[in-house]
């Protein structure tokens, strides 16, 4: 097999490799370039609206500056700092919440009778197949002042005045946990299901209580799955756009939303590019860590 296959890797690799080089790597190089060089982006065919939107004098001064002006602006303006910090804080907080909610679910699936497990895994994954937009839309209807949650709570006599949850950070956290739960449960389930049950059994036979067996055997063995799930959630959450846009208030700043509004509302393509580059620099560590974990998992299996 090894002698036969070696020669065949390149022809098979060529097409997907070229596709990704052309449509993933090259575009990213263009983003990096545009974030630095304003002159290329000021050509009329590419951005005719800009001269009208920005003050002409300010725009000329902006053009005459050197390449790193967009980054200087990013660093100098508090808005971008708070968007960045708030993205990281919301992503970290929701990753912790996801772990707290996802871990018991993954454990329950791993401990369910074997013939039930595929069904339970499928039930966890199904929501991921439905549109994120629709799922977040459902939460608008639930959380808004005259929505279903307030209707139910007032109807039950638990509260008198409606809770205002929509357009707050709490709503954003709920939406993120809801949307990303499958991404946390699946890697956790993978590692919980795979680990050697004989070890847990041995711990029990040696007199460990179920709780002690969990903390000394099961939990340490599942840490890699926990890390994989956490990274798989954390990285895209930092750049999340739809959830903060639809559920958050105007004061819920996140980088994905900042990039979106710089691009679509302000039509400032170079600044949006600079935000994209800054976000990638922030995320490169977590992405590489996730890759390393996945590579180790794949080798362990191969």
């Amino acid at each position: 097999m090894r002698t036969v296959s070696r020669g065949r890797v390149w022809p098979v690799l060529a097409l997907p490799g070229l596709w990704l080089a052309a449509f993933f790597l090259l575009p990213f190089a263009i983003v990096a370039k545009i974030s630095l060089s304003e002159s290329a982006t000021a050509q009329p065919p590419y951005r005719p609206q800009l001269a009208g939107i920005l003050d002409a004098a300010a725009w000329r001064a902006f053009l005459e500056g050197l390449g790193f002006d967009n980054y200087r602006l990013l660093v100098a303006d508090d808005l971008y700092w708070s968007a960045g910090l708030s993205s990281l804080r919301i992503a970290a907080l929701s990753t912790v919440l996801l772990a707290l909610i996802g871990y018991p679910m993954a454990l329950a699936i791993a401990r369910a009778p074997e013939r039930w497990r595929p069904l339970l895994v499928a039930l966890t994954v199904v929501p991921f197949w439905t549109s994120l937009l629709i799922r977040i839309y459902a939460w608008i209807a639930i959380l808004k002042p005259e929505g279903w949650l307030n209707g139910a709570l007032i109807g039950a006599g638990l509260i008198r005045t409606p809770l205002s949850i929509l357009n707050t950070e709490a709503a954003v956290l709920i939406g993120i946990v809801y949307a990303y739960l499958p991404f946390m449960v699946l890697p956790l389930y993978g590692s919980l299901e795979r680990h050697d049950r004989a070890l847990v059994e041995a711990a029990s036979d040696l007199g460990a209580s179920p709780l002690r067996a969990f903390w000394t055997v099961t939990f340490p063995l599942s840490l890699r799955g926990l890390a994989a799930g956490a990274l798989l959630c954390f990285v895209p959450i930092v750049g999340e756009f739809i959830i903060p846009d639809l559920l958050g208030g105007s004061d819920t700043l996140m980088l994905g939303r900042t990039l979106w509004s710089e691009f679509f509302a302000n039509r400032d393509w170079p600044l949006a590019s600079a935000v994209a580059v800054a976000m990638t620099l922030i995320l490169v560590g977590p992405i590489l860590a996730h890759r390393a974990l996945e590579a180790r998992r794949a080798e362990g299996r191969a």
């Binding site: 449509f23 993933f24 575009p27 990213f28 983003v31 590419y46 990274l231």
Partner: peptide, 26 residues
């Protein structure tokens, strides 16, 4: 190669979207 294949899965969509748009414009 594996990094390039899996990166679009975790890369925030706004970044992938913006970079593709800039490619198409270029």
């Amino acid at each position: 190669f594996t990094g390039m294949i899996y990166a679009p899965m975790v890369m925030p969509e706004v970044i992938t979207g913006l970079s593709l748009l800039l490619l198409f414009v270029a």
